[in-house]
Amino acid sequence: MKGRFIIIIILSVILVSCCISITVLASDPQVNNMKKVDSVYIQKGDTLWEIAAQYYTDEQESMDDFIIEIKNCNQLTSDTIHAGRYIIIPYYESQ
């Protein structure tokens, strides 16, 4: 009888722990963020890094990784961008 009581207590603690974890995950603001893209017109003097800095958020691993993602989206082989063209920038937006 005492063994069953201990098992019930342990299972209750585990169940409560799981419920708390689920609640914390559900309230995480990053869960509600949606990835989108924006088309940016490049003006004279713009740099890839300056444009990326305007869209950078904590969802990206690092600024270097974000630059690589932008370059991949635009099939760029270097950081060079040209005025008068458009560049696609992926970004996160809160819902």
Rank of each mutant, 00 (worst) to 15 (best):
H82M: 14
E61R: 06
A52E: 00
M1N: 11
C73H: 05
K35I: 00
K35R: 04
T47E: 06
T23G: 14
L11Q: 03
P90R: 13
V37K: 08
I89N: 05
Q60D: 15
I67E: 03
A53W: 10
G84H: 12
I6M: 15
A26L: 02
Y91G: 04
E61G: 04
H82D: 04
Y92A: 07
Y41K: 15
Y91L: 11
I88G: 05
Q30T: 06
V24W: 06
D38R: 03
Y86Q: 13
E59G: 11
Y55G: 09
I22M: 12
Q60P: 09
R85G: 07
L25R: 04
I42D: 08
A52C: 09
V40G: 01
D65Y: 13
G3A: 14
D65T: 03
V31H: 08
E59T: 10
Q54V: 12
R85M: 13
I89H: 02
V13G: 07
D46I: 02
D58V: 05
I87F: 14
S94P: 07
I14H: 01
N32G: 00
I81L: 00
K36H: 04
Q54M: 08
D64G: 12
N74I: 00
S78Q: 03
V24D: 07
Y91C: 00
I20T: 06
C73G: 15
E93F: 04
N32S: 04
A52P: 01
G84T: 01
E69R: 15
D79S: 13
Y92T: 01
K71I: 05
L15P: 00
I8M: 08
A52L: 01
V40H: 04
I10S: 01
D79T: 09
R4Q: 03
Y56T: 11
E69V: 10
N32E: 00
A52V: 08
I51C: 05
L48R: 10
G45D: 12
E69P: 07
Q30N: 06
Q95R: 11
G84R: 02
K35L: 08
P29S: 03
T77E: 12
V40N: 03
A26F: 07
I8A: 15
D58F: 09
S62F: 01
S27H: 13
I68F: 02
K71P: 05
N33E: 14
D46C: 05
R4P: 11
V24E: 01
T80S: 09
W49A: 14
D28A: 09
D64V: 11
S12N: 10
I51L: 07
I81A: 01
G45I: 02
I81W: 13
L15C: 13
L76R: 08
E50M: 13
P29Q: 05
I51F: 12
F66I: 13
P90K: 02
A83M: 03
